[in-house]
């Protein structure tokens, strides 16, 4: 037991150090770089009103917080979906849930903006939630008919393409100038997120995270399969519904503000399980949240800096890091199947 506990403590320390490090880097570097003293000064309230303070407080700080909170939310969403489908490569992006949310948000924006109505953050999240539930419903219908897990992923990817295709068409035909920034959002990006946005999504994601953590006991029992979970007293129907709602809400909140961000949901829980040597939800849920934050902060740096002032879409970077992890998982699974 001690060995486990020590490993967990070490794991959390590593994650916190990385999180602090990348968050600091996110504040220091960019098209203009600041010294640590300046940044600390600004954060503690000095230099109010200067350009530097503006850049740090209204652009970089919200962006760093967004990467942490949204990245963490995606990772936890992925972990919950993996539990639901008993499939290690399930995730909000692969299953088309992010794309469903994206489609719904884009449609809502186009519809309302053309009529001159500005959408509140809550309305954005609601639209994204509706879209992700739509994709989720489709995936669940498919998975109840086809038991093979590879088919689940294939149909998820297809739904993703369909939703993206419709979104792209809609964005291309919508000529309102407000919709121009829809384009970078629909590729996935943490840019343009301000303090008000953070105040809107932070409570949604943190409450969902809490809800996920409170399901740890059920998740743990469910790891042995549905039959054993039920026989030890889990209300399987309610539990599965809870998993769907929380994971959809998490990926919806992320998608509403950052667009679809790929592979975080699969790669992070997997790497976290490897780091901690367990899949116990009590550990993995908080650790995945931190890990998702680290992962997105890390990927957001090159997205911002590499071709500044032009930005890369965050999904391009997360895919570069995340896709090999997925391949690793599948190769590893193949091996254990034949042992």
């Amino acid at each position: 037991m001690m060995k486990g506990t020590r490993r967990y403590v070490t794991g959390f320390i590593i994650l916190l150090v990385l999180l602090t490090g990348f968050a600091a880097a996110g504040l220091f570097y960019g098209s203009v770089s600041f010294s640590p003293e300046t940044v600390i000064g600004i954060l503690s309230g000095a230099e109010k009103g200067t350009t530097a303070a503006n850049i740090i407080l209204s652009i970089r700080l919200p962006r760093v917080l967004a990467a942490i909170i949204l990245g963490g939310g995606l990772a936890v969403s992925g972990y919950l979906l993996q539990t639901y489908f008993a499939n290690p490569i399930a995730g909000p992006f692969v299953l088309g849930i992010s794309s469903g949310a994206k489609l719904a948000v884009a449609m809502a924006m186009i519809l309302f903006l053309q009529n001159g109505i500005y959408l509140s953050s809550a309305a954005l999240i609601a639209a994204a939630f509706a879209g992700s539930m739509l994709s989720m419903g489709f995936i669940i219908a498919v998975s109840s008919r086809i038991k093979r897990s590879s088919m689940l992923i294939v149909s998820g990817v297809m739904i993703g393409y369909i939703c993206s295709g419709i979104t792209d068409l809609a964005v291309a035909f919508a000529d309102d100038s407000n919709i121009v920034n829809l384009h970078s959002w629909s590729m996935g990006s943490f840019s343009g997120i301000d303090g008000d946005d953070v105040k809107a999504f932070a409570p949604v994601i943190l409450l969902s995270l809490l809800a996920a953590f409170l399901m740890s006991k059920q998740i743990n029992a469910y790891r042995l399969g549905e039959v054993y979970a039920q026989s030890s007293g889990v209300n399987v129907k309610a539990f599965r519904l809870g998993l769907i709602l929380v994971s959809s809400l998490l990926s919806a909140a992320v998608t509403a503000f950052a667009g679809p961000v790929s592979f975080v949901g699969i790669a992070v829980p997997h790497l976290i399980k490897k780091l901690f040597g367990t899949a116990d939800p009590h550990i993995i849920i908080p650790a995945s949240f931190l890990g998702g934050g680290v992962f997105c902060l890390m990927c957001d740096l090159p997205a911002r800096i590499l071709f500044a002032p032009t930005e890369l879409s965050i999904s391009s970077v997360t895919a570069l890091v995340g896709a090999p992890v997925v391949i690793m998982i599948m190769a590893g699974r193949h091996n254990t199947d034949h042992q």
Binding site: K217, G233, A279
Partner: peptide, 19 residues
Amino acid sequence: RVDAELMTCEQAVSAGRYP
């Protein structure tokens, strides 16, 4: 077959304490 990843035997047995 039960195939829970990274689950030790003791954790699997402990799942019986759920109620």
